[in-house]
Design a protein around this nucleic acid. Structure first.
Lengths: 195, 195
DNA sequence: ACCTGAACACCGTTCAAGT
DNA sequence: ACCTGAACACCGTTCAAGT
């Protein structure tokens, strides 16, 4: 059953958020469902596939934001806020998204949302894929850093950082960057190989 | 001895690059040095500390770029190229840098280089820490993505991406973003708490 | 001072077996 | 069809012991 697979992934994500990624084992996840470790193999394949499944399930939480309308700036803000919310709801599991590339439909949805936004911003077509990668690095990276503390080592002195304000300022700068590229002759096609 | 610790870390990094991060175990690293697993504990502490030590050792490879002169644009390019080179020399070990925050002296050097560059670019002092975090996310994130294939799932169709050209274009946009902030009234101080 | 080896409580995964 | 339990080759780490 596909529903059982979903339950397993949800419990794995909950366990990662509660006890950290290191607490994830085939045994611990199965135990959370009252099963022996071997009982979950038919549903998730193996541990690697379990982790990939968790990533995909997390990205699925972003789909509500796919159907929004409004200006491209508003939609970019909405996507970025959705990613940040995902990271905060899932502080343990989120870093899997940065660590594991994923080519599933749910994973592509984020890319497509960003590409659509860039096209509406009149970014030259040749720059869209590159800027899409740059933006997603920025959005995913900001959320990851806020959550996993890469920046806490960096943070200056004893002051705390106002992450809400920093997030909005970064978003403004990201929008400025997109506008800058849109108002400029295209960089040239960066793909190689036969078209 | 501190020299022995260095040898252990170097062998651990080499092993990660050759066989992947999953191949790193206290036993496998020790075996590479002809030792039993327990023999390396006095030098590296435990496995977590071993991984942190690897991160710090990797970041140490960036120090040659700290003493460069030239325009801030040239120096930003040099830092970014150095990070990218590090990722390409160490495709297996590099992702530890993204995954593990580090507060050691070698880790701070990169932050300080970027902050110095931003100040020379006349970025308002209140924006320096934020932009420093944004830039390092961009630089580290780009290198990580190129190396670990997060983007290969994203890449459009059957075409290959010219990463060299994309890297330079991203660098241009990053410089444009810095100039944009430098030519603007400051966003206001984003740190909270008593000064 | 530096290293080894046995031991313990874990892993992921295979396989044969149970209902 | 779905699940269990024993087993195997691994882990990280502790501890007592060797030189």
């Amino acid at each position: 059953m596909d529903e059982k697979r979903g339950q397993i992934l949800d419990q794995a994500i909950a366990l990662a958020d509660e006890r950290g990624l290191a607490a994830i084992s085939m045994r611990s996840v199965a135990e959370r469902l009252g099963l022996s470790s071997m009982a979950i193999y038919p549903y998730v394949g193996n541990k690697e596939a379990l982790l990939d499944g968790m990533v995909d399930r997390l990205l699925g939480e972003l789909s509500p934001v796919a159907g929004l309308d409004g200006s491209w700036q508003d939609r970019l803000r909405a996507v970025a806020h959705a990613v940040r919310g995902l990271a905060r709801r899932h502080p343990g599991a989120y870093q899997l998204i940065m660590a594991r590339p994923s080519g599933t439909p749910d994973a592509r949805r984020l890319d497509e949302m960003l590409s659509a936004i860039l096209r509406e911003a009149k970014v030259p077509e040749a720059d869209v894929p590159r800027l899409e990668r740059l933006l997603s690095t920025l959005v995913l990276g900001f959320a990851a850093s806020e959550v996993n503390g890469r920046f806490s080592a960096t943070a200056v002195g004893p002051d705390d950082v106002d992450w809400d304000a920093e997030f909005e300022a970064d978003l403004d700068d990201g929008i400025g960057l997109v506008e800058q590229v849109a108002d400029r002759p295209p960089t040239g096609d960066l793909t190689s190989g036969r078209t």
